[in-house]
Nucleic acid binder design. Structure first.
Length: 202
DNA sequence: TGCCAGGCCCTCTTTAGGGCCTT
């Protein structure tokens, strides 16, 4: 599979916000996009080794009962390392998912070489008219069909993937760029908002 | 057991503060 035309879009559900303060992953979901199409999927719950609190149960719909028989994080993450391989990676608010990916893979002595891009940072440049840049809001803004079942890992990764493809199509239709290298998307995601057109029209 | 983040980005900025996003 061509690395240049492939990205893995991933999403974690977790026990909280900070792996450096002991939070763990409880579910990973991911889709593999090749040449603009979803070609593969990965989804699994994982047992973090301790109970999750009521807020997380309510927020995700993942219960302690569901996690009781799930495989431990180390088994799931070792397998997931094989799924992401050396592909580049995308997530919505990628700094969050990158922290958990790094922390969980470090526990199983796995590494990855792909680079991250962030769909939220890109959307702040391309979809400046959106009411906000939450994933659900952007899915509605981009008119992506959705049943509204957010906050599960595979569903959110699929919606992020479709949002990502929507933004690539936006770049093509507005700026005549049918394909744009991943490294340029990363740079675009850090470009000052008022310079986006200048950046893409050069 | 319970504690709890951090990068981006704007502005009443840069010797700072606070909202947005993710769970």
């Amino acid at each position: 599979m061509s690395k240049a035309n492939t990205v893995v879009v991933l999403d974690f559900e977790t026990t909280g916000l900070s792996p450096t303060y002991g939070d763990r992953a409880i579910e990973i979901g991911a889709v593999l996009i090749e040449n603009g199409e979803i070609k593969d999927r990965f989804q699994e719950l994982m047992n973090p080794g301790r109970p999750i609190d009521g807020f997380i149960e309510s927020y995700t719909g993942i219960t302690n009962d569901m996690l009781k028989d799930a495989r431990p994080c180390k088994e799931v993450m070792s397998q997931f390392a094989g799924f992401i391989g050396d592909y580049n990676l995308v997530a919505h608010n990628a700094s969050f998912d990158k922290r958990f990916l790094d922390a969980e893979l470090k526990r199983v002595s796995k590494q990855y070489t792909g680079k991250f891009a962030c769909s939220m940072l890109l959307s702040r440049r391309l979809y400046q008219g959106a009411a906000d840049h939450k994933l659900a809001t952007l899915v509605r803004y981009a008119k992506i069909p959705s049943d509204g079942n957010f906050h599960r890992a595979l569903y959110d990764s699929e919606m992020t993937a479709k949002l990502w493809l929507s933004m690539l199509e936006h770049i093509n239709s507005h700026y005549g760029l049918p394909s744009i290298p991943f490294t340029l998307i990363q740079k675009l995601s850090k470009t000052p908002k008022h310079k986006v057109s200048q950046y893409l029209n050069r």
